[in-house]
């Protein structure tokens, strides 16, 4: 309160009112974004709950880097990092190539109504939660009633327990991720394609260029910046994984552990199993690695297109 009064004397009325406007959201940021940043200190503590969070932090002993030594000596952590980076590499490549290709194709369709209908249909999965998708996947893969097993049986094959066959799951997870995010990517690239100057195409047609040549020589080079940007931005998130995809969809099946254990899954599981030291160390590792990659990605964006950089 006192602070606000002082503002009124020293500041123009405009600034005081703007500060008042910003205050609620500022408080939100303090509570829900900045407090947790200071809370990461528990990664260096032997954290035990005693009273509220602050008294617990104070009363817990310092552990130095013990939590991190414990984390990096465990086999699970290596697996989680490898899975997270591996899946993201595939997601980034397919998540760039397919939406670009699809957007190029759909923009060529003669009927603009068809374009709209297809785009709307393909945007649909983006709006479904992983819980719902997990239910849908279950309807395909469940042992007793799943569509795949029913079909397999009617074709003379035996039923299989899909939730225990880890050799299929990398493909299932990649498919689902691409399927869910395809519509989103297409929206971005279609907007870029719509922004290309039509005069280029007029000139190209006069010179006798085929649609194929126009796509390679005009459209793609024109949207190159957007592609590079989206690519780099997703590079910035290589240490993060979609928790719902890797935890909900495989139904936390133990047989699939080696192909579904990503950093986010590991953090959640160790949090729930109350191995707080390990959980907080891996969460901090993820935040720091994530920060470094996002900032490097941003640095690269600045090189490509300064206008689009975050800072």
């Amino acid at each position: 309160m006192a602070k606000k009064k002082r503002k009124r004397f020293l500041w123009p009325a405009d600034d005081a009112e703007l500060s008042l406007l910003a205050l609620p959201a500022f408080l939100w940021y303090v509570l829900f974004a900045y407090l947790p940043m200071f809370g990461i200190v528990i990664a260096f503590k032997n954290f035990k709950i005693k009273g509220n969070f602050i008294t617990s932090i104070i009363s817990s002993e310092w552990a130095g880097f013990a939590n991190f030594r414990f984390l990096f000596s465990s086999a699970d952590a290596g697996l989680a990092v490898r899975n997270t980076l591996g899946y993201n590499a595939i997601f980034i490549i397919l998540g760039t190539a397919l939406p670009v290709g699809f957007a190029l194709m759909i923009s060529q369709l003669h009927s603009s109504r068809a374009k709209k209908v297809f785009q709307t249909a393909m945007f649909m999965p983006y709006f479904l939660s992983w819980v719902v998708i997990s239910a849908v996947v279950w309807a395909f893969l469940s042992y007793d009633h799943g569509l795949f097993n029913t079909l397999a049986e009617s074709l003379g094959f035996s039923r299989s327990n899909w939730y225990m066959k880890k050799e299929y799951w990398p493909f299932i997870l990649v498919f689902l991720n691409v399927w869910k995010n395809l519509g989103y990517g297409m929206v971005v690239y279609l907007a870029a394609i719509a922004g290309v100057d039509q005069a280029f195409y007029e000139a190209a047609v006069i010179d006798g260029a085929t649609p194929w040549q126009q796509t390679w020589k005009i459209t793609l080079p024109s949207i190159k910046t957007v592609i590079v940007l989206m690519f780099i931005l997703s590079m910035g998130r290589v240490f993060y994984s979609d928790f719902g995809l890797f935890y909900q969809v495989p139904r936390d099946s133990n047989s699939l552990f080696t192909v579904t254990n990503t950093i986010d899954v590991m953090v959640y599981k160790s949090l729930k199993s109350a191995t707080v030291g390990m959980a907080s160390a891996s969460a901090l590792f993820q935040s720091v690695a994530g920060c470094v990659t996002i900032l490097s990605a941003n640095f690269l964006v600045r090189k490509v297109d300064p206008e689009s950089a975050m800072i």
Partner: peptide
């Protein structure tokens, strides 16, 4: 907060 966060545990 766009580039750094406290992570799940602390949150």
């Amino acid at each position: 907060p766009m580039v750094f966060n406290g992570g799940l545990v602390s949150t």
